[in-house]
Design a protein around this nucleic acid. Structure first.
Length: 281
DNA sequence: CATTTCACCTGGTGGC
DNA sequence: TGCCACCAGGTGAAAT
């Protein structure tokens, strides 16, 4: 469901829990949707492999998988494959005991050598699971720029000559990777910019305000998430996601925390968009 | 080509 | 309680 901060938190939590563990069995549901790679191929590819590391790229969780056979002791194995998890709107990646009750809508279960399981649960099935053999193709690379790393020049260049709204531009993963509806609305509020403003018409100063607001909001959310990794990753924690105090997101009609004006909700790119008509210009 | 709309899913909520 | 409309953190294909 998750946007960049949630995905970052989940990737860190999963990394800490499965790094060095080995897949001894892989099970996938019969459902069609969540598989970018046919489930049988994923199961076969993952079988026996060791988790070298897990990290985030955009909204994707990328698991670097090492060889299925034990290497020489003390030798650092090289990644041979990647298991890529996109959580869509409702996906969760959980580390559980083998005995933990199986939740409805479980689409993948990797049994690990430690006895634990890594489970993918996704009611709406907007999530995607992909498996790549690095020998046969390129490593995964999220298309857009990382909002936490991008510099002022590169950021400004993303929006130059674009006629779409800045809100729609922020949501476009080919421009920036990882920004979703919550943090788009929140960062536009902190930058004091109307979501309907044409992206290409923002001044350099406004864009710089947006870039710093976005960074700040994302870092803050990661910091909060980091203190409750277990809410996301350990068997059935689900809090985490909404614990942040939003300034505009889903506060339609409520008073702006800065000036008291009722927050407005409009539709941009089919997504609910929240802003303060007084603070944002 | 850039941009917008819509379909893909299940589940929760609030009105009647 | 039931029924219904509407909403949800995402994205890629189809339409404009």
């Amino acid at each position: 469901m998750p946007e960049l901060p949630e995905v970052e938190t989940i990737a860190r939590g999963v990394n800490a829990r499965v790094r060095g563990d080995r897949v001894v069995d892989a099970w996938f549901s019969g459902a069609r949707e969540p598989f970018k790679t046919p489930p049988a191929r994923q199961a076969k590819g993952l079988q026996g492999r060791v988790f070298l590391s897990v990290h985030r790229a955009g909204k994707h969780i990328v698991c670097e998988m090492g060889p299925a056979t034990n290497g020489r002791a003390g030798e650092q194995a090289r990644a041979e494959a990647e298991w890529i998890v996109h959580l869509g709107m409702t996906g969760r990646l959980l580390v559980t005991t083998a005995e933990a009750p199986r939740e409805k809508h479980t689409h993948a279960r990797l049994t690990l050598k430690s006895g634990r399981e890594l489970r993918f649960v996704d009611p709406r099935r907007f999530g995607r699971l992909e498996f790549r053999e690095l020998e046969r193709g390129p490593a995964f690379d999220a298309p857009g720029a990382e909002p936490l790393e991008i510099g002022a020049d590169e950021f400004a260049a993303l929006f130059r000559r674009r006629r779409l709204s800045i809100k729609a531009a922020l949501l476009n993963q080919k421009l920036l990777a990882g920004v979703g509806n919550i943090y788009a609305d929140e960062s536009l509020f902190h930058a004091a910019l109307r979501p309907r403003r044409a992206a290409g018409r923002l001044t350099r100063a406004e864009l710089e305000r947006l870039r710093t607001a976005l960074k700040k909001v994302l870092h803050h959310a990661i910091r909060l998430g980091g203190s409750s990794v277990s809410d996301y990753v350990d068997a059935d924690g689900e809090r985490g996601f909404f614990q942040l105090q939003h300034f505009v997101y889903q506060r339609t009609g409520e008073p702006c925390r800065r000036c008291g004006t009722p927050i407005r909700r409009i539709l941009i790119a089919g997504r609910g968009t929240h802003y303060c008509p007084a603070c944002q210009r």
